[in-house]
């Protein structure tokens, strides 16, 4: 079969059909965690390496459980235990990983494009578990799964508002690409320093006022704000940030009555979300863990098992010799 390796490097360019297949497969695997024996033999004899150059216990654990539930041999290599610290290049490290003949490498890396780089060096499927400020497609798929479970309407009728540090957020990017592909309306909200105008070109609506951004929204996604951004003058103080962008009850009241609120990580209470909202009935943060394992199982299965009927994955576009990428128009 000339399918080659299939990767999930980002949600940009992944078709609505592929996303739907992944969500459907994940949906049918959610029950596995309720079984007496939580193990399926589908990936017996396959090797999955979790290569984490940036720390993330939650994502790594989720992938580990997913791989093990499918009977794959799961190896975890984190940046401290790998030799990257000793000055080995990323390429060297990648080749050493390749020597273990993995069927799939799950990579988390602080540099944008790292997953793509790995896909060019190693001959196996690559899953991007977060690369710099670029994409975090499995988190976004998980968010999509959660949204789909809670909202029965068609994607095109959904309004999703993403609030916070958009420009530095790989979660925001992946969600934006995925949601737009599925047809949802995406509103991005944040101060102009964290929300470049260019996002309009990817089909997003831009708001500097969180109140109008959440008006009649079905889903609100709150991004975590990093303290470091203050030092680079993206906003003056966390206090002032919270004054304009903290999601409080008054703002939530402007959204649809059945709005759900997603948050990808530990909440800064009173900064991104007020306590009353965090503890309120809208938050679906906790239900995301079981979905995460099912989603990652679905992905591992769909990528590792080559099938004409399965997903295509995000294609690795080899630079065409004559296409001359980036060539400016002339004449």
């Amino acid at each position: 079969m000339a399918l080659g390796n299939r990767h999930l490097l980002g949600l940009e360019g992944v078709s609505a059909e592929d996303i739907t297949v992944l969500l459907d497969t994940a949906e049918s695997l959610v029950e596995v965690s309720r079984r007496e024996v939580k193990k399926l033999p589908a990936l017996r004899g396959k090797t999955v390496i979790n290569f984490f150059v940036e720390n993330s216990t939650r994502t790594r654990t989720s992938f580990e459980i997913a791989a093990k539930r499918l009977s794959a041999d799961a190896i975890s290599i984190s940046s401290s235990s790998s030799s990257m610290a000793k000055g080995e290049t990323f390429e060297d490290t990648a080749r050493n990983l390749a020597a273990m003949s993995p069927d799939c490498i799950v990579v988390r890396h602080p540099a944008s494009g790292a997953a793509r780089f790995l896909a060019g060096v190693v001959d196996c499927s690559i899953i991007n578990a977060g690369d710099g400020s670029h994409e975090h497609p499995t988190q976004a798929l998980l968010d999509l799964l959660t949204i789909r479970q809670r909202k029965k309407c068609a994607w095109k009728d959904l309004v999703v508002t993403i609030v916070g540090d958009i420009v530095h957020s790989r979660v925001a990017r992946s969600n934006l690409f995925g949601l737009r592909t599925l047809g949802a309306t995406v509103r991005l909200a944040g101060p102009p320093t964290l929300l470049p105008e260019e996002f309009r070109e990817f089909g997003a609506e831009l708001y500097y006022d969180i109140g109008s951004a959440v008006q009649d929204a079905d889903v609100i996604m709150m991004l975590r704000i990093q303290h470091e951004r203050m030092a680079s003058n993206y906003f003056p103080t966390l206090n002032e940030y919270a004054r304009y962008f903290c999601l409080n009850a008054e703002k939530v009241a402007r959204a649809k009555p059945d709005v759900i609120i997603l948050h990808p990580g530990p909440i800064n209470r009173g900064i991104e979300i007020s306590s009353e909202v965090a503890d309120g009935p809208y938050s679906v943060i906790m239900s995301q863990v079981a979905n995460g394992v099912a989603l990652r199982m679905a992905l591992l299965y769909q990528l590792i098992i080559p099938g004409a009927d399965g997903i295509r994955g995000s294609a690795l576009v080899e630079p065409a010799v004559t296409a001359a990428p980036g060539r400016a128009r002339i004449e």
């Binding site: 944008s112 494009g113 793509r116 780089f117 576009v317 630079p319 990428p325 980036g326 060539r327 400016a328 002339i330």
Partner: peptide, 22 residues
């Protein structure tokens, strides 16, 4: 700078990385 545009960076092409940038 008169033949290439910024899109040459697509795919994280390090051979399109220079200062000033494309």
């Amino acid at each position: 700078h008169f033949i290439l545009e910024e899109s040459a960076v697509d795919g994280y092409n390090t051979n399109a990385k220079m200062k000033p940038p494309l």
